Amino acid sequence: MSRQIVTEPISANAFAPFGDLIEVSGTPDKIINQGQCGRYHDRARMSFAEGRAGISLFDANPRSLPYRLDMVERHPEGSQAFIPMTENPFLVIVALDEQGIPGQPCAFLTKSGQAVNYHRGVWHGVLTPLHSPGLFAVVDRIGEGTNLEEYWFDTPYQVVAEPNEAAG
C-alpha cells in the first residue's frame, strides 16, 4: 500500500522553504549586450562547505506519473541546482527535515523555463524528468568527503497529478 502525494504547480513562494525557483520573472535587473539582453541577476543562493562549485551534465531517463517515491536524498555539504537543457517540465519532490529524517514530502511540476536550486541539507527526490531527453546542467559542490545522505521510506508514496489517480 502506498500513500498519495498530489502534484501542484511550482511557485517561488511554495518552494522557498526548500530552495530557489530559478526563472525569468519581473523586470530584468540589468540590460546588457548593447541593449539586447535582460540580465536576471543572482537568482539562486548557492552554498558550499569545503570544495568548489562545479557544473556537470546529467542525462536522466524520463519517468511518468503516477510515480513511485520510495527514497529521498540530501546534500549536507552543498546546494544543488538543476537547470533543464530542454523546454520540458520536470517533477520536483521535496520534504522538510524533521529531526534528521524527512517530513511529509510534497511534489511540484515545473513549467518551461524554470529551474530549481535545493538549499544545503534539503531532502529531495532524485532527478525526475517527465519527457525525453532528460538533459540537465547541474551546479553543485565538488570536493572531498561525503555529501550524500539517503532516506528510504518504509511505505512508499505515489505521486499523482490528480487525487486518487490509479497506479499505472
Rank of each mutant, 00 (worst) to 15 (best):
P9I: 06
F90R: 12
D140Q: 12
P133C: 12
A60G: 08
T110E: 05
I93M: 14
A161E: 15
L96C: 09
F18E: 08
L109S: 07
S112F: 00
V138M: 13
P17M: 08
I101N: 02
A44V: 06
N88D: 14
V94T: 01
F136E: 05
I142V: 14
F15V: 06
D140P: 04
Y67G: 03
V122W: 00
Q80R: 02
A115G: 13
A166E: 13
A14L: 06
Q99W: 00
Q34A: 15
K111L: 00
F90Q: 12
T128F: 01
V72Y: 01
A12S: 15
H41N: 05
S11F: 03
G51H: 14
Q34M: 09
P133T: 13
A14N: 09
G134H: 09
Y157F: 14
F82M: 09
F108W: 12
E150V: 01
G38Q: 10
V6H: 07
D20K: 04
S47N: 13
F153E: 01
P84A: 04
L21T: 04
D20I: 06
L57P: 02
E73C: 12
Y67K: 13
G26T: 01
F18P: 00
A166K: 13
A16I: 04
G121D: 08
G78N: 10
V126Q: 05
I142G: 02
L91K: 04
P84I: 01
A44W: 07
P62I: 02
L57G: 02
I31E: 04
N13R: 15
P28D: 01
L21Q: 04
V139K: 10
A115C: 08
E50K: 14
V126R: 02
D70E: 15
P133R: 14
I55M: 13
I101K: 15
F90N: 11
D59K: 12
E8W: 01
T128S: 14
E144T: 07
